[in-house]
């Protein structure tokens, strides 16, 4: 009985949300024709804050999305802690345990040989942070221009993903240095290689380290941006064609794209975490 009631409420909420969005779109039909996809990803300060040097600390919608991500994670952490107090595991707790063991056994356990306990918190947090940010991006929130509903996600911004990738980059070399001492840098080139080739390999490795950082950031950013851009294109096309038939067909297609985006959101979080684990593990257990 409770479950059915909850389902009905969820259904009502979805209908209400759809109605709000519909009214929002319909109220100024003339404006909607000027649909610029790039604008969806531009950041305008909501609250102006002074910049410290080159760092402009204004609150933009990306910052709000980041806060929301952190807030959702904190709420879930508190719920987990509360559910652990009960003797018998609840459904929620079993689900959280599944996610936890996915991070623990599926990512860290599958990739890392040593230093699992040390690096698990960082890698798992990265996984859950990216996952939550990606999934939050698929919920329409009234943070677009003129407080319209729109899709945006913090991870569709290169500087957010770059900061996350920078964490992995820094932690990778920190872990390598702590584990292997100064020999960590020497071990970048195989000791068996002939002299000149050795230096060349070392340089290539150094460049690849930087590229790892860039690719880690760009992969996540481009995936989320591309996904949201495709969704935006489908919504925009319905407005451009000015036809109900096209709108219905495109909405149907966008539902499929949306489901694929949920999958992508999960996969990209997984890949980000697993590559972080691979890099850190590679720095810990170096080949000589």
């Amino acid at each position: 009985m409770m479950k059915r009631k909850r389902l009905i409420w969820a259904f009502v909420a979805i209908i209400a949300l759809a109605a709000v969005i519909g009214i929002d779109v319909l109220k100024e039909p003339g404006q909607a024709e000027e649909f610029e996809i790039a604008e969806e990803f531009e950041l305008h300060p909501i609250i102006e804050l002074p910049s410290i040097g080159p760092f402009d600390l204004s609150i933009t919608k990306a910052v709000v999305y980041l806060w929301l991500t952190a807030a959702v994670l904190i709420v879930f952490a508190l719920l987990v802690r509360r559910s652990l107090k009960r003797e018998t595991p609840s459904r929620f707790r079993v689900m959280m345990e599944l996610l936890y063991s996915l991070a623990h056994d599926g990512i860290v356990g599958a990739v890392m040989k040593s230093g699992r306990a040390t690096w698990f918190p960082y890698i798992a947090s990265a996984f859950f942070f990216v996952l939550t940010a990606n999934l939050l991006g698929l919920i329409p929130l009234p943070l677009a221009e003129h407080n319209q509903f729109g899709f945006y996600t913090a991870t569709a911004n290169l500087y957010v993903t770059l900061a996350l990738a920078l964490c992995t980059f820094v932690f990778t070399h920190y872990a390598g240095l702590r584990q292997n001492g100064p020999r960590y840098f020497v071990n970048w080139a195989p000791s068996s290689a002939p002299p000149v080739l050795k230096q060349l390999i070392w340089v290539i490795h150094a460049v690849s380290e930087v590229f790892r950082l860039v690719s880690l950031a760009v992969r996540l950013f481009a995936n989320m941006l591309a996904g949201h851009a495709i969704l935006a294109v489908f919504f925009a096309m319905a407005l451009i064609f000015q036809s109900y038939l096209a709108a219905v067909v495109l909405q149907g297609a966008s539902v499929l794209i949306y489901m694929f985006e949920i999958f992508v959101a999960f996969i990209q979080a997984f890949i980000f975490a697993i590559l972080s684990a691979v890099y850190i593990s590679g720095a810990l257990d170096q080949e000589h």
């Binding site: 599926g106 990512i107 599958a110 990739v111 690719s215 760009v218 992969r219 481009a222 995936n223 591309a226 996969i267 997984f270 890949i271 697993i274 590559l275 691979v278």
Partner: peptide, 16 residues
């Protein structure tokens, strides 16, 4: 697991 790592690395090329 390894497949996902491979997907991530391969896909990055398209994303570049």
């Amino acid at each position: 697991t390894n497949m996902f790592i491979g997907i991530g690395v391969t896909e990055a090329v398209a994303l570049y």
